[in-house]
């Protein structure tokens, strides 16, 4: 099962990397929001899922007992919470940016 964990964690690291690069490179605040709102959600979800799988088979007292199952369920709670909370936070900050008057970057405006 270790290979599954390695695949999940490497995928999560890739999406985190893409989100960070996007955060640095995109031209305005609204486009940066796309990078963090999606890349961080999927990256965190994949990494946490991979760790839950690893913990299920190697955690506790040698794996696959009550303690390891409970800890894995808790880790999956974190993943579900990130899945629900991240789009909501993205939406809230986006609306705050619109209300406080950050000017959106457009292709025509840059010419």
């Amino acid at each position: 099962m270790e290979i599954v964990t390695i695949i999940f964690v490497l995928g999560g690291l890739f999406f985190f990397f893409a989100a960070s690069i996007g955060l640095l490179r995109f031209p305005d605040f609204y486009a940066r929001m796309h990078a963090t709102g999606k890349g961080d959600t999927l990256g965190g979800f994949l990494i946490i899922l991979g760790l839950a799988v690893y913990n299920l088979f190697h955690g506790g007292h040698g794996g696959f007992d009550l303690a390891s199952i409970l800890t894995s369920v808790k880790i999956i709670f974190i993943a579900v919470f990130i899945f629900l909370a991240n789009p909501t936070a993205t939406h809230a900050v986006f609306k705050a940016g619109l209300d406080s008057g950050v000017v959106p970057w457009t292709k025509e405006g840059s010419k």
Partner: peptide, 22 residues
Amino acid sequence: PTVMDRIISVGAIGNKTTATLL
């Protein structure tokens, strides 16, 4: 450049910290 950029960056750092804690 704007305050909102800082807010979303702090949020992104917080997400990474959650994974790092695990």
